[in-house]
Design a protein around this nucleic acid. Sequence first.
DNA 1: CTCCTATCTTGACAGTGTCAGGATATGGAG
DNA 2: CTCCATATCCTGACACTGTCAAGATAGGAG
Lengths: 209, 209
Amino acid sequence: MTKDIPKLRPEPPLTSATRPYHHGDLRTALLAAAEAELADRGMEGFSLRSVAKRAGVSHAAPAHHFGDAKGLLTALAAEGFRQFLAAQAAREAVADRDPASQLVAAGLGYVDFALARPTLFRLLWQSERPDFSDADLGEAARAAYTHLVNQVTGAGGRSTADEAAVWAIAHGLADLLAAGRLRSVGSLLQPARDAMLAAIIRRALPGAA
Amino acid sequence: MTKDIPKLRPEPPLTSATRPYHHGDLRTALLAAAEAELADRGMEGFSLRSVAKRAGVSHAAPAHHFGDAKGLLTALAAEGFRQFLAAQAAREAVADRDPASQLVAAGLGYVDFALARPTLFRLLWQSERPDFSDADLGEAARAAYTHLVNQVTGAGGRSTADEAAVWAIAHGLADLLAAGRLRSVGSLLQPARDAMLAAIIRRALPGAA
DNA sequence: CTCCTATCTTGACAGTGTCAGGATATGGAG
DNA sequence: CTCCATATCCTGACACTGTCAAGATAGGAG
């Protein structure tokens, strides 16, 4: 008899037949979905509801974990800054140990990240959507900045001009390439492109000749 | 007697008591309103309806002149590129006539524009909203690029690396300053800042020492 | 077993861009 | 001067967005 059935979940909301009410790790699932959403709908096409749908969850579910859309993008930006630093560390690990080579390697990692995740790169550097006064995001961003300063001073940089020059040239290359400009460099094959980027970055170095 | 009144416009739609039905030059008024909207609501807060309200016109009025929001932002970006070039020309006019000084002046104009109109700067370089395949916008952007190449070759640049280095360093400085980063440079007073920027830009020059 | 709390859903609201159809003004033909 | 074709602008509607309030569900502490 149907009466025996205790309460029978109203509907397995059609999105996933066997989805449990509680997701388990919705927070990280939403972050992953948000990054995917940014990657293929772009910064301006980003939709919180679409992110929720991507994670197989109702449109208001993200609110409990992140408050609002700004909160989600703030958390994503913090995670992005950590990946940003990781991309630089990956290059540094396979480069020569001398300070100048390490600095150039960091610059190549800077560009790697921008090319691999252009929209996330924009979220970090040009968007107004994340809350940059957030503690976690602030710390992640500060870590990236500190790493840059350390690299520059390690390579012999003494003035703020040295610091600014290195940062600007790496950032300029990364941003232009991420936007699809600078085709003369962007269309090069990986090894040739790395060589050219390295040569350009070296121009900003303190003792460059 | 009220009967004599021929037709009596239903309502001077409250926005402006004496507004005529036809605006006169709504197209340019909308462009100005759009730029103002970008300036104080930012790229992500941009609203077509708000732009229309700003111009004192109904929410669907822009459609006839620009098609859709993308069309408006495309026209605004084209106009922006022309102002972008004008900012460089203004610096070049008051600089020494030798090619290297002219190139540095162009870089200072690049930064001037980014600082004066940060959101418009982003519309030109990082947004996906304008239609960059549009003829007018394409021509305006190409003109800016051509000017850069001419400046570099004029200053002795021969390789694509020279071109990329100059572009990247000017763009990097402009973008970071527009975003409020690079405080060590951005917080300087105008003369000191110009001097430092010029010194940094010179590092990218072909024959830099 | 009971209840408390965190988690998730549903339903509503105002605001957005876009489209269809109607209103109004302007300039030129007669 | 009249009349009308056309460009210009408005109103109303639609689907979609982010956010809020209120209810449903699950998991764990007592």
